[in-house]
C-alpha cells in the first residue's frame, strides 16, 4: 500500500508490565487523508489505540512506523505535533470559550489579529458562534465536546484523532458533527475516530476497523458513498458513482450503503436467483485474509467479496479477470 502514514506491526500495550496486554494489533496500515473509524464495545481498547496513534502513549511492544520509519522518541514528538487528540470527556480549561481556543494558537505565537480570525472561524464551524465570552465550564456536555473539537481544529493539525465525538450529542448535533468531519476530510485532513455507534461510523467512514478485546477483527464490509435516487414499491435505488444499487424500500436521508463482503457472490456468468443486484467488472485486487481471500472487483464502484481458496481456484480468480458480482437487495443496509 502506498501513501502509508502510519503502520503498526505486532503493536502491544499494557498499562503495567506486570499486567497482560490490553491491546494487540497484528497489522494495521493507515493512509494519509480519509476517515478511519474504529468501532468496538466499551473497553475494547479503542481509546488506547487512538492515544498510541496520536503519540500520547508509547506502545509496549511491536513496531510503529511513521511514513515508513520506526517511531523513536524524536519521531513520536513529530507524530504528537502533527496530530491533535480530543478526549471523549474533554478537559475544558477554566475561563472563557475564547481562552480555550486561543490557547493552542498562543503556543504557536500567532499574533492577536490572526487569532481573532481563527477563533471566530472555528466557533462558527462547530455552531458555537457568539459564545466566545461565555464561561467555558458552564457549557453543556455536547457544547463542551464541540468546543474541544473547535480547539483542536484551531491549531490546524494534519491528523485529527477524536475519541467518541458523538458520545454526548443528540441527533441534530451528531448530524452537524458529521458535516464538519466530512468537510475536514474533503479538505485533506486525516481523521481517526472511535465510536460505538455503527450508524455514525458508516456515515463518516472511508474505512472501518473493528476492535474486540484489544484485537482487530476484520469488519469486511463495503461502504459506498452516494444518495437515494428514487424508488418504487419493491426497491429503493441508491446511486453511487454512477452505479445504481437496489436496496429494500426505505426513505430518509442516507449517504452510505453498506454491504458485508461475505454477502457478495462472484460468478463467471450471470445468475438467475433472488440476487437483485448484479454487476459486472474486473478483479482489481486479491488479498489473503487469514484462511479466506478478499477479492476486489471494480464494477464502477469497488466491491469486495470474501471467498474461499476453493472458489478462487474454480473461478480462476486473478487480477484483471472479468466476473459477475451479485448480492441481494436485503443485504444492503443504508445509513
Amino acid at each position: 500500500m502506498q501513501n502509508n502514514f502510519l503502520s503498526l506491526k505486532g503493536v502491544t500495550f499494557s498499562y503495567d508490565a506486570r499486567l497482560s496486554n490490553v491491546l494487540f494489533i497484528e497489522d494495521l496500515e493507515l493512509e494519509r487523508g480519509g476517515t478511519t473509524v474504529i468501532v468496538g464495545p466499551n473497553g475494547s481498547g479503542k481509546t488506547t489505540l487512538l492515544k498510541i496513534l496520536s503519540g500520547l502513549l508509547k506502545e509496549s511492544g511491536g513496531e510503529l512506523k511513521l511514513y515508513g520509519r520506526a517511531v523513536t522518541n524524536g519521531a513520536r514528538e513529530k507524530l504528537c505535533r502533527m496530530s491533535v487528540f480530543v478526549h471523549q470527556n474533554p478537559y475544558i480549561f477554566s475561563g472563557s470559550v475564547r481562552h480555550n481556543i486561543e490557547y493552542g494558537l498562543k503556543l504557536k505565537r500567532l499574533p492577536r489579529n490572526e487569532r481573532n480570525g481563527i477563533v471566530a472561524k472555528v466557533l462558527n464551524k462547530v455552531g458555537l458562534k457568539g459564545l466566545e465570552h461565555r464561561n467555558a465550564l458552564s457549557l453543556s456536555g455536547g457544547e463542551k465536546q464541540k468546543l474541544a473539537m473547535a480547539r483542536a481544529m484551531a491549531v490546524e493539525p494534519d491528523v485529527l484523532v477524536l475519541d467518541e465525538p458523538d458520545a454526548h450529542m443528540d441527533a441534530d448535533s451528531r448530524r452537524s458533527i458529521e458535516g464538519i468531519l466530512q468537510e475536514l476530510s474533503a479538505g485533506g485532513k486525516t481523521l481517526i475516530i472511535s465510536t460505538h455507534n455503527e450508524a455514525f461510523a458508516y456515515r463518516i467512514a472511508d474505512r472501518i476497523v473493528r476492535l474486540e478485546d484489544g484485537r482487530l477483527v476484520s469488519p469486511s464490509v463495503n461502504i459506498l458513498r452516494g444518495r437515494l435516487s428514487g424508488g418504487d414499491e419493491h426497491f429503493s435505488y441508491f446511486e453511487s458513482s454512477g452505479t445504481t444499487i437496489l436496496c429494500p424500500p426505505v426513505t430518509g436521508d442516507f449517504n452510505s450503503a453498506v454491504i458485508p463482503c461475505e454477502d457478495i457472490i462472484l460468478s463467471a456468468s450471470g445468475i438467475d436467483a433472488s440476487t437483485q443486484n448484479q454487476l459486472f467488472g474486473r478483479v482489481s485486487n486479491i488479498e489473503k485474509e487469514s484462511y479466506l481471500f478478499l477479492v476486489t472487483v471494480d464494477c464502477g464502484v469497488p466491491l469486495r467479496a470474501l471467498v474461499t481458496k476453493k472458489s478462487v481456484e474454480i473461478l480462476e480468480i486473478r487480477e484483471g479477470k472479468k466476473l459477475f458480482v451479485s448480492f441481494k437487495a436485503s443485504a444492503v443496509k443504508l445509513y
Binding site: 500520547l56 504528537c80 496530530s83 487528540f85 478526549h87 478537559y91 490557547y103 503556543l107 480547539r151
Partner: peptide
Amino acid sequence: ISKELPETLETLGARGFSRNLMIMRESG
C-alpha cells in the same frame, strides 16, 4: 487534576514551562 489535562496540553503542543504553568493555573 483530571488525567485528561496533561494529555490535552501535550496534544495542543504545550511543553515544559508553558505546560507546567497551565497545570498550575488549572489547579488554581
